[in-house]
Each structure stands twice: as C-alpha cells, then as structure tokens.
C-alpha cells in the first residue's frame, strides 16, 4: 500500500498576542500524517490541541512554520481555495459543536452540502442517512436549542461526515457522549478508516484513544510523545 502524506507540518508555532502579553499555544511542532492513518492526539487542557487542529483544518493560520496539505502549501492558497478544500476534503468536528442556532438538525447537516452544490433532494437524503447513523433519526426536526449537548455533538459529527471527507478532524468528538454511544461513534470512525479515510482525533480518554493506530501526546504546545499503537482496540461488529 503506497502511502503519501496528507498532512505535513514543519516547525509550526502559534503565538497569541493580547496587548503585549504573548501566549505560546504551539511551539515548533513538526509531524507527518499519511493517508489512511488514524491518529489520536492527547494532552492536558490548554496544551494546544485545539489550536493545532484548527491549523490542520485550515481554519486558522500558524504564526510561523509550514503546512503542506495534500501536497499544497496552505500559505499559498487563497481564502476561497481553502474554503473549497474544507468543503470537499475535510470534515471538521468542533469541540464546541458550532451549530447554527434556531436551526433544525437536518438543516445543520445539509449546510456543507449546500455549498458543494448538491441538489436539494440528495442533500436531505444524505442528511437523514448520517443523522440515523449517529442515532438521531427521531430528532431530525429539533432545532439546536432543543437538543442536549450530546445530541448537538452527534449532529456536528453527522455534518462532518455528510460530505464523505477524505480527512476527518475531530476535536473531542465523544466529549459529551455516554460511553456506549461513544463506542458506536468509534465504530463509525473505524469503518471509515478501514475504507481509507484519514482520521485525526483529539481525546482525553485513553480508552477512546485506543481506537487509533497512532497516538501523539502534546504538552505546553510541544510534542512529547509520538507512538504507534500496536494494540488497536478490537471492535464488536
């Protein structure tokens, strides 16, 4: 199986400057993720995991360093080109879900498909399919504020999956979900990974991380550990 890196970052730093106080969120981080990998990123709160994920998702720019996404240097891409890449290739699950308020679960899931120009009927079909997949077939017409935190998180997962992205970036995708349902989500991820999708997932639960083939630990904005996980957890099929 020939593997080419889908993600390649070198010497990435992210420094937030508020007035004259500098906060270093990421410091000189470099790594490579090949197509088809399933990577878990772990680390204490505030260690820079989300910051890293936003950069990987082309949602934010690093202060310094180089990011090659699928062979292209992100720095040289325009806003619109990046928007297209995010739409077509990347599925992003936000730690804070980021659903449209006062909008139904169904509508939220169709949103990326609208921008992809997918016809209305197909959008609805696909949205229904992915909402059922995450166990929300009976909540499709609930609006965001009528859903529990865990349900909102599952809508966010369905939305990220709806465009069948080759790269799935998940920031604490099971943070608010009970363990049985979390296992179901992990089954979905594992199946996608088996089909060749690349997955990068932030988690603070060692148990969840065991689903990944590779685990990266970061602390204070630096990689402290990058190991392959040989004892990938068995899944019940």
């Amino acid at each position: 199986m020939s593997k080419s890196p889908i993600i390649q970052i070198s010497h990435i730093s992210k420094i937030y400057k508020i007035y004259s106080v500098e906060t270093v969120a990421l410091l000189d981080v470099s790594f490579k993720i090949d197509q088809g990998e399933f990577v878990a990123i772990m680390g204490p709160s505030g260690s820079g995991k989300s910051t890293l994920m936003h950069i990987l998702g082309a949602l934010d720019k690093p202060t310094s360093g180089e990011y090659i996404l699928d062979g292209k240097n992100v720095e040289n891409l325009t806003d619109d080109e990046l928007a297209e890449i995010r739409n077509q290739k990347i599925g992003f699950i936000f730690q804070a879900y980021n659903l449209l308020p006062r909008t139904t679960a169904l509508k939220n899931v169709t949103l990326p498909m609208i921008y992809a120009g997918i016809p209305k009927e197909e959008r609805r079909e696909r949205a229904k399919k992915y909402l059922s997949l995450v166990g929300l077939s009976d909540r499709m017409l609930h609006t965001t504020n009528q859903l529990s935190g865990g349900q909102q998180q599952r809508v966010a997962i369905a939305r990220a999956l709806s465009m069948n992205p080759s790269l799935l970036l998940a920031d604490e995708p099971t943070g608010n979900i009970a363990s049985i349902q979390a296992e179901e989500i992990m089954n979905i991820f594992r199946k996608l990974n088996d089909e060749g999708h690349t997955i990068v997932m932030i988690t603070h639960e060692a148990d969840i991380a065991q689903h990944a083939k590779r685990i990266i630990h970061i602390r204070d904005g630096k990689i402290v550990d990058d190991i392959s996980n040989n004892k990938q957890k068995k899944i019940k099929s």
Partner: peptide, 19 residues
Amino acid sequence: TERTREIGLRKALGAKKKV
C-alpha cells in the same frame, strides 16, 4: 456578533466569500 459567528461557521464549512 451573532452574524460574525454564523459567517465563520459558513466559511468553515466551505462557503466562499462571494457567496
């Protein structure tokens, strides 16, 4: 404020500026 978040989200999901 609310609209800015909405715009950020739409952009994150693939909306181009012009759209």
